[in-house]
Design a protein around this nucleic acid. Sequence first.
DNA 1: ATTTAGCACTCGCACAAAAATAGTGCTAAA
DNA 2: TTTAGCACTATTTTTGTGCGAGTGCTAAAT
Lengths: 362, 362
Amino acid sequence: MCAKGTELSERKKLILKALVEAHIEGGEPVGSKYITQNNLLSCSSATIRNEMAELEQMGYLVQPHTSAGRVPSEMGYRFYVDTLVEQYARTTHEVGQINQLLKAKMAEIDQILETASRLASSMTNYTGIAIKPKASSVTMSKFELVSMDENNFAMVMITSGGAVKTKKVKTTGTVREDDLRRLAELFNECLCGLSADMITLPIIMEMENVMGDSAFLVTPAVKCVYEVMSEIDGGTMRLSGINHLLKYPEYSDTQQLGQLLGTLESKDEILDLVSQAESDDINVLIGSESPVKVMNNSSLVFKPIKKHGKTIGVIGVLGPRRMNYKQVLQTIDEITGSISSMMDEEAPIKELSEKGEHHGGE
Amino acid sequence: MCAKGTELSERKKLILKALVEAHIEGGEPVGSKYITQNNLLSCSSATIRNEMAELEQMGYLVQPHTSAGRVPSEMGYRFYVDTLVEQYARTTHEVGQINQLLKAKMAEIDQILETASRLASSMTNYTGIAIKPKASSVTMSKFELVSMDENNFAMVMITSGGAVKTKKVKTTGTVREDDLRRLAELFNECLCGLSADMITLPIIMEMENVMGDSAFLVTPAVKCVYEVMSEIDGGTMRLSGINHLLKYPEYSDTQQLGQLLGTLESKDEILDLVSQAESDDINVLIGSESPVKVMNNSSLVFKPIKKHGKTIGVIGVLGPRRMNYKQVLQTIDEITGSISSMMDEEAPIKELSEKGEHHGGE
DNA sequence: ATTTAGCACTCGCACAAAAATAGTGCTAAA
DNA sequence: TTTAGCACTATTTTTGTGCGAGTGCTAAAT
């Protein structure tokens, strides 16, 4: 908007920073006096007042009413975050902990995301968000069919992304192992590489044709493929640590909080939000920068997790606008980093063997 | 506790019922006057007052302070619910809707539960709960290994309960199709029917022995089995419609609400709670009847879903103590009923074929 | 003997006035 | 350019008061 650039004197920056942090800490408007007392600014409250007045004119600060202290405006937060992002240093001492926690739970991608979200929440004291974005177009790269009993078989699908999905299929008639093998072959031939909308009726009919007597297997199986594809497409979102929100007075308006939670649960909006804004690095949405109206006094910090260049998930944190950006930025970055690197080296397989052998010795 | 039996006169019952319902409706203490006016009790407020005084002495009512109306005590609610449970009639007109909604989403058990929880929440306006209880002891009934690429294969496991689970396994060396087949055979031979704690080191070593050169495959694969078993064991809980809670003033104490949400998220307590109380039919926990302290002014209504006599999930509703038990009991019963019956007839497979054919015509 | 009417009494709540607080803006001096 | 001091103002907190809802009791009515 009215980005006048870096017209801020060094002292103004210092004051702004101090004020933002004080406000994050306490949640209340902060006055000139407070700053002179607690911070090492070597000037008097009057000076601060002058500066603050200017900062307010420039749009960085807002005062809720005459004779209240100042509160950072959205622009103020934005400035604070931007300068912060440039400079925040990785204090590596927490990384170890993250790694350990994540490794312990290393499993499917969903689990990782869930754990990461929990982790983010508990480390920052805000609400953690884990998102598995919509995959634009899923295709299958391999099918395998496993018989379970006379009327059921399991369908194992490996997606182009390398994920393994399984569905149970109930058939109307009895299934012979033999037919299953043929069907699997057929699927591998005809359906690999096709996205959901490319599986057309003619293809299905042709397959039924080929299967002859066992044509009745085709439709339910294809239906499964459909389902899995759209399921993966759908996207997922998980929250953890909602209770943290309640600690902050800005969410004491139950009306609004209710709306917010409702919006979060319906997930679509957030899902869109996140997939749009993907800047590949940490994103910080402050207040009304978010298109979701109900998040006006909330901030959302999130960062995608990449594997081989593809986004496979997003980890983030939701909290009041006055969230502790310093800590949050750092934490999110570390968590996503840990996951990413862990993804690349892939499962720490050796561990069980060790565990197993040590087991006797302990 | 002090169950003096059915010492309640018919009129007392009527008054109690009227009062409970009035309180559910409005949320505020209800006085003698209100009852004479709105309900068809043919006596004056003074009489009601006398009766209410007695009811209070007996412990069915409580007055928050002198000169406020009465509020049902826990015991009062309990009485109300108990009589209600005997008599509540199934109004079948909503069942159709439930069936439809559930069928549309018919998929894996997790999805069903999730959908059901959502449904319960939206139909009752309270918070829906879906629980997949801890399975006391899972065993595998079949293994299948599917190669993905040189260093990865997928492991498909069919549990004793008939669920299909998949895990991706990364190996340290190259995998030949041949070895996979052998390994699968071996697993089917050695591990079927074993619960997690029965898979001991000697068994693993023996398998490694048999596999010879390809022994390196065994450990990571076994680890997966472990993981899946404990994962299934774990139990799962999902909430939906948390925002509904906020509509009720009893949750306006953000402090307490926060604790409640925290407890809910950690899920263990609720999981235990539910698996303990399993009376196989509808359970109603009113206020402090629940061992979870933080739920003192909440009620929990839930009912297990059975398949072939085994509990595979629990659907419930959480709300304020003054929840609309009539409606909730009914709804939960209908939803669980729908699911159960749907489970038995199993997937409505024909549908896709129809859909497919109509597809061209539309 | 049970129900009803009437009345005095008790709280809590909502509203209003008053006091206290905190922080600003401005002016004048350093 | 910074600082000190002071007047000003809006908010918050405290205090006080009246109103109303609802009870409990007693006495009359059925």
